[in-house]
Each structure stands twice: as structure tokens, then as C-alpha cells.
Amino acid sequence: MIKNLRRGLLASALAFAVLAPASPAQADEVTLMDGITALPVAEEIREGYKRELYPHWKDDDKNGCTARNDVLIAEAIEAPTVGAGCALTGGVWHSYYDDVLVQGPSGVDIDHLIPLAEVHDSGGYGWTTERRRRYANDLGSDVTLVGVSARSNRQKADQDPATWMPMAAVHCRYLGEWVATKHRWGLAVDRAEREALLRYAASCPNARITYEPAL
């Protein structure tokens, strides 16, 4: 279950840790730079990608709420009302990609931090349907799924950091979450992506990442 600890308005861009709900003995912690250089480099394979290959917004924890609503409840800075069937009304969310406050759940997009198409390109093409489903509904990490403004999510689409980044003040946070999620799910990077990660990470000398590999 996701922890209800995210996200302060404009978290520190230079010194942070990507949190995972695991004990230190289960988690891996490295510097951001070491995390980037440890990622395998491979050409992307988009062949065969279809969004429906990654079943998403399921209630895998059987708590009566879809993964989307679980994230909305966890990330709200003003809690929504939870009605029958986990219907949500009201509430306020902070979109850290663009520092926007969003009123009401319908204006919030739940972004897969590593977009589903990027996951497929980076190794998901070889996954089973069950593993794809587990990624698409991953509540075992606080950063795989993130509530953001619809506008920023549309701008990002399926791009990686070589072609899209959020606002500059949160670059270090975003890079850390991206790299931690790639490690958590055993995904590769392509050369342009790796170069972009290293270039941006040069401005994050104190950043460290913590992640628990997904089973």
C-alpha cells in the first residue's frame, strides 16, 4: 500500500531520497550518478506495443479502490470524500511536474512515471502479462505512479528525459524517481536517454536513490 507521505510543494531539488516501502535490508541505495551508470544500455524495441498489453487501474490489493484511486487518496493535499464504490469527490492535489494545484479528482492524471510505451521499449516487450499488470498498478513503490496535471501528462506523453523534463526546480527529484523505477523493474536505457540522465544529474551532486527491486 502506498504511504501517504508525498509530496510537499516544491520538494528540495538538490538533496532527496526516492522512498520505497521496504526495510533497509531489502532496499538498494546508491548515488544518483552510480544508479545511472549501472543501468544496462540497449536499443529500444517498440515492436508489438499496445497499451492494452499492460492492464491498468485494477484493484489488485482488493481494498475496493482501483490503483488510480489509491494514488489519488494517498497523494491528496486536501483529502477527497470517498463514497460508495470508492467514488471520489472534492480534494486538492499538487502536480509537482509543473507546480500546479488541481481541484477535484477529474483534473488529475495518474502518470506512470516510466510511461507504458517506454517500459515496453526498455524490456517490457519480453514480460509476461502478469508482470506488465503489476507494473501498471504498482503500489509497492511511492514513485511508480504519480498524480499530475492533465496538461503536464499530455506534454510528457511517452517521452523519456532525452526529450522531456518537468520544470527545472524538480529535475533532480524526477531523475531520481526515473532511475529508481528503472532499477526497480529491471529496465534498460538507450544511449540518448543515458546521456540526458548524466547531463541533468551533473546538477544533482548530493542526490541518492533508494529502491526495492520488484519481484
Results as ranks from 00 to 15, higher is better:
1 M>R: 10
4 N>F: 13
5 L>Q: 09
10 L>D: 09
12 S>V: 01
13 A>L: 09
13 A>E: 12
14 L>C: 06
14 L>P: 04
14 L>S: 13
15 A>E: 14
15 A>G: 05
16 F>M: 08
17 A>C: 06
18 V>Q: 03
19 L>H: 07
22 A>N: 03
23 S>G: 01
24 P>L: 09
24 P>K: 11
25 A>L: 10
28 D>V: 15
29 E>Q: 15
29 E>V: 14
29 E>N: 05
32 L>T: 09
35 G>A: 13
38 A>Q: 14
38 A>T: 12
45 I>F: 00
50 K>L: 12
52 E>Y: 11
57 W>E: 08
58 K>I: 07
60 D>G: 12
61 D>R: 10
61 D>L: 00
64 G>F: 05
66 T>G: 14
69 N>G: 09
69 N>Y: 04
70 D>A: 03
71 V>F: 05
73 I>Y: 00
74 A>Q: 02
75 E>R: 02
76 A>E: 02
82 V>I: 15
83 G>P: 10
84 A>Y: 10
85 G>V: 06
87 A>H: 12
90 G>S: 06
92 V>A: 01
96 Y>P: 01
97 Y>K: 05
98 D>A: 11
98 D>P: 02
98 D>L: 02
99 D>S: 14
100 V>N: 01
100 V>D: 06
105 P>K: 12
109 D>E: 13
111 D>P: 10
117 A>S: 12
118 E>C: 05
121 D>L: 00
122 S>E: 04
123 G>R: 02
123 G>N: 04
123 G>Q: 07
128 T>N: 05
136 A>S: 11
137 N>G: 10
137 N>Y: 09
138 D>G: 03
139 L>S: 02
140 G>A: 15
140 G>D: 15
142 D>R: 03
143 V>L: 06
143 V>M: 01
144 T>V: 15
147 G>Y: 01
148 V>M: 06
149 S>K: 03
150 A>N: 14
152 S>E: 09
154 R>L: 15
158 D>C: 05
158 D>P: 08
158 D>Q: 12
165 M>D: 00
170 V>L: 02
171 H>G: 07
171 H>N: 11
174 Y>M: 08
176 G>K: 03
177 E>Y: 07
178 W>S: 02
186 G>L: 09
187 L>F: 07
188 A>S: 15
189 V>T: 13
190 D>A: 01
192 A>L: 09
192 A>V: 01
195 E>L: 00
196 A>H: 01
198 L>C: 05
200 Y>T: 12
200 Y>W: 09
202 A>Q: 15
203 S>P: 00
204 C>R: 04
205 P>F: 05
206 N>E: 14
209 I>N: 07
214 A>D: 02
215 L>D: 12
